[in-house]
Lab assay of single mutants.
Amino acid sequence: IINNLKLIREKKKISQSELAALLEVSRQTINGIEKNKYNPSLQLALKIAYYLNTPLEDIFQW
């Protein structure tokens, strides 16, 4: 999986903590996703895309 979450999140000036709060997950979860240590569920990936107002395929590429 190619993961552009960190790049997109930083472009939008959103911290890991802010995104985690919006998604109701821990900051460690966001960190793990960004470091490719954790693959989000489809539901979480869709929520990330929604809150970042970015197409899912721009954030994650399988």
Rank of each mutant, 00 (worst) to 15 (best):
S41C: 06
Y50R: 08
N36G: 15
L5A: 02
K13P: 03
Q61D: 11
S26V: 03
G32Y: 15
R27K: 13
N31G: 09
S41T: 12
I30M: 06
A49C: 06
P40E: 01
I8Q: 05
A21I: 11
N39R: 15
L22E: 07
L46N: 08
I8M: 07
L52G: 02
L46S: 07
Q43F: 10
N31E: 15
K12S: 09
L52K: 00
K35H: 14
W62L: 13
Q43I: 13
A20K: 02
Q28L: 11
F60R: 00
L52I: 03
L42V: 08
L56S: 03
I30T: 01
N53W: 04
F60A: 00
I1N: 10
A21D: 13
R9F: 04
K12V: 08
Q28N: 12
Y51P: 01
W62P: 08
S15L: 06
I14T: 05
N3C: 08
Y38F: 14
G32C: 15
L52W: 01
Q61N: 11
L23G: 02
A20P: 00
I59L: 11
V25G: 01
E18M: 09
L56C: 08
K11D: 08
E18T: 12
N31M: 14
L23Y: 02
S15G: 07
N31P: 02
I48S: 01
Y50N: 07
E34G: 03
E10W: 06
Q16N: 03
R9V: 02
I8A: 06
L7G: 12
E18I: 07
E18D: 11
S26T: 10
K12N: 11
I30N: 00
P40L: 09
S41L: 03
N39H: 14
T54S: 08
A49R: 02
S17W: 12
T54H: 05
E57N: 11
Q16V: 13
I33V: 06
I1C: 15
I14S: 03
L19G: 00
E10K: 11
L42W: 11
L23K: 00
L22S: 09
L42M: 12
L46T: 09
N3R: 03
W62F: 13
A45N: 01
A21E: 12
Y50C: 11
G32E: 15
E10A: 08
R27Q: 15
L5V: 08
Q43G: 12
N4Q: 07
P55C: 06
L7K: 14
N3H: 04
F60N: 00
E34A: 04
K35L: 14
N36H: 11
D58Y: 08
L56A: 05
R9Y: 03
S15E: 05
L5K: 00
A49H: 03
A20H: 04
A45V: 05
K11M: 12
E10S: 08
L52F: 06
A45Q: 10
Q28T: 11
N31S: 13
L56M: 11
I59F: 04
R27N: 07
V25D: 01
E18N: 09
D58W: 09
K37H: 14
P40R: 01
N53V: 06
Q43K: 13
S41Q: 05
L7C: 13
S17C: 11
L22T: 07
I30Y: 06
K47Y: 04
E24V: 08
I14W: 06
K47A: 10
A49P: 00
L46H: 08
K47M: 09
S17R: 11
R9D: 01
L22H: 13
L22A: 15
N31F: 07
I33G: 01
I30Q: 01
Y51N: 05
S15W: 04
L56T: 04
I8V: 12
S41D: 09
Q16Y: 04
L56V: 14
A49D: 00
E57I: 08
Q61F: 12
L44N: 04
R9Q: 03
L22I: 11
K6P: 04
S17H: 12
E57R: 10
I1G: 09
K47T: 05
L19E: 00
D58H: 10
V25L: 06
R9H: 00
E24G: 14
S41E: 06
L42K: 08
L56Q: 02
E18K: 14
K6M: 08
S26A: 06
Q16F: 02
L46P: 00
L19N: 00
E34Y: 02
Q43S: 11
S26W: 04
T54K: 04
P55Y: 04
P55V: 05
I30E: 03
Q43H: 13
K11T: 11
T29N: 04
L46C: 14
S15V: 04
L44V: 06
Q61L: 08
Q43C: 14
A49Y: 02
R27I: 15
N31H: 13
K11Y: 10
R9W: 04
A20D: 01
L7A: 14
A45M: 15
R9P: 01
N39E: 13
A49W: 02
K11C: 09
E24W: 08
S17Y: 10
I1Y: 15
P55H: 05
S26L: 03
K47D: 05
L7E: 14
N53P: 01
N39L: 15
L52Q: 00
N3S: 06
E24F: 11
Q61A: 10
I48K: 00
E34V: 03
K35M: 15
Y50H: 12
E57T: 11
S26M: 04
